[in-house]
Write a protein that binds this DNA or RNA. Sequence first.
DNA 1: CCAGCAATGGACCGACCGGTCCAGTCTAGG
DNA 2: CCTAGACTGGACCGGTCGGTCCATTGCTGG
Lengths: 202, 202
Amino acid sequence: MPEKLTAKGRATRRRIVEGASAVLRERGVATATLDDVMARTRSSKSQLFHYFPGGKDELLLAVARFEADQVLEDQQPYLGSLDSWEAWERWRDVVVERYEAQGDECPLGALFLQVGRSTPGARAIVVEMLNRWQESLAAGIRALRAAGELPPDIDVDTRAAALLAAIQGGVSILLSTGRSTHLRAALDQGIADLRSTGRAPA
Amino acid sequence: MPEKLTAKGRATRRRIVEGASAVLRERGVATATLDDVMARTRSSKSQLFHYFPGGKDELLLAVARFEADQVLEDQQPYLGSLDSWEAWERWRDVVVERYEAQGDECPLGALFLQVGRSTPGARAIVVEMLNRWQESLAAGIRALRAAGELPPDIDVDTRAAALLAAIQGGVSILLSTGRSTHLRAALDQGIADLRSTGRAPA
DNA sequence: CCAGCAATGGACCGACCGGTCCAGTCTAGG
DNA sequence: CCTAGACTGGACCGGTCGGTCCATTGCTGG
């Protein structure tokens, strides 16, 4: 990486990351090559290695960071204000819609498996994203509790963790089967169980 | 594939599949090579292509089949007789233990991403495994219902689907983070919600 | 016992692809 | 301006690895 990036440099780097992200979606992480990225982003080998001296791995890592942010951004503004049952329902719809649209390609999951445990950074990115995600869910549950919709002694963290797991599972099944049934079931059941806790405390 | 396999042939084929499975766990799907498999199984290139004329893809597919069966077998006999709350608890322990032991390598998931949508068979294997798994869960819920532990009008399929998603999500988070917190939370919360349905029908 | 096919060994190939290198162009700052 | 360093183009390299081929051995059924 050069000492300093000019405006032009930043633009190119960005173009490469976004283009690479698209390529990975289309061709799949396993089969995408640097040449594919070059073609897509109208750049040369030397540019790739200019901005990502660590080579392919570093590029994939940058894409992973980009994708992780995307995942959370796509859920806004709903994920940020889960303070009523209606808000939860709207958020659920957005999540289902997002992943149905994405279809059967999970750039982030595949990316992680590719870059894998080899690099320390890959795992950190995913972990941080999951943490942020779960914290948003926890905040939503706390908001409901504050509104008197949930009992004061509800175990917020376990609930949030279970909900996050349910979503992840629904998504991974969607990726495997192409069907969003399980994602829907997981979200509906998760929210329903939360509601019934409000009516009949555990 | 030859017209007919002799006893020796079957043994060799089996040795290759099991060895390949081990290699994939150790080296990771992305980096494992046919030479690794050869070394591990004390076989030659020609043997690999003799038993798997389709090459690497066909071998990976065979391994995937093998792994899928393994996943369900490892949960027996518990998964097969979920007819009391104690049985569910025991099963939960087995699942957590199995995946904690497996650590952060998911041969099946990685396999699917590698062979991917390219081959029609890969998806079918995963789908079939998920179906069998979910059906076992559904049978367990029905058993509880029959025993009067759950209300007669409970939505068995949605419950089973949500539970399966929760497990899958817990596992995939375990793979990403190395921590089994979410898998535990998902299973505990899932079973707890089922129980509370028994006490306070939805 | 002897065809015929399964089973095995291993040399060899060739494409693919990540990575290197250098030569040339643009640009910001003094 | 002019020069240092960012930026770009693209030829080239070399290892890796899936896949092919043929020669040899072993088994099996008629």
